[in-house]
Nucleic acid binder design. Structure first.
Lengths: 136, 136
DNA sequence: CCTTATTCCTACTTAGTAGGTGGGTTTATT
DNA sequence: AATAAACCCACCTACTAAGTAGGAATAAGG
């Protein structure tokens, strides 16, 4: 499995906020309720989204979270790469792993590299704007 | 990570056998040595390849494993699907998981389905014949 | 300035699984 | 009979995804 709940939830949260179409801040509790995700777990995910500046958080009464850009300015790829650590399809391509010793004459490496490209290119081609539903 | 060592090793084994260009049986020990994979672990992987009829095993002295088809008749996709249980990029698409309750109006599901298609189509388009090195 | 509603922070727990091992049984060849 | 191989089943271990707990910092309203 390439994308864990963390990444999937992150995506859903951004879509959720985009669909609210409000300038104000939405508290975590509301998002959690709508998306049926535990508040505590969601908290951890939102933290990384704030760190990555995809969201802005405001503390205190009336606080919450809001998007920092327009929906069509977020690509799915960047959201997942932020929350997933690594989107590489195989361990040999993971950035933190040291380079594989068989690399130079590995018969399968080019395959993995192409697959990696394919996946990332696709995920970067889709924006949150493409995913939100129409307002009625 | 989409593809674990099991799948990657399986692929390497088939390539290894294809490159031997022999009609005879190659013992596990040899493959393990060449590919630097522990014999015991490899055993488990080869077992599933035999079960899936991608390889044929012969017991006893002079025995070993050999391909059941020509290299260009194996697609990477089928090898990985056999050894990986599931190539789905996200849990919601895994066959053993029950259908997600949010499915019908899930904003992200079409994305995952397309990604899944993309990956499988690519992996099915590459054969072992494409990956083996030229004899010199 | 106190209360309330919120985010932010650190640490912990738990269940599942990838990756690997050990020891033995069966089968075929010489 | 000896040997070399695949086959089989049970076990182990370390890691990580997923989730939880409890509190500290901050902002707004009265």
């Amino acid at each position: 499995m390439l994308v864990s709940t963390k990444g999937r939830y992150a995506l859903r949260v951004i879509i959720d906020l985009a669909e609210q179409r409000t300038d104000g801040y939405t508290p975590l509790r509301e998002i959690a309720r709508r998306q049926e995700i535990s508040e505590k777990y969601l908290e951890a995910i939102l933290k990384s989204l704030v760190r990555g500046q995809l969201l802005e958080g405001l503390r205190g009464k009336g606080g919450g979270y809001r998007l920092t850009r327009k929906p069509e300015q977020y690509t799915v790829g960047e959201i997942l790469r932020l929350t997933e650590e690594d989107l590489a399809p195989v361990a040999c391509l993971e950035t933190q792993n040291q380079v594989c010793s068989r690399k130079t004459n590995c018969r399968t490496r080019p395959l993995w590299e192409k697959l990696n490209d394919l996946v990332n290119t696709y995920l970067d081609s889709v924006t949150i704007g493409d995913l939100v539903g129409q307002p009625e």
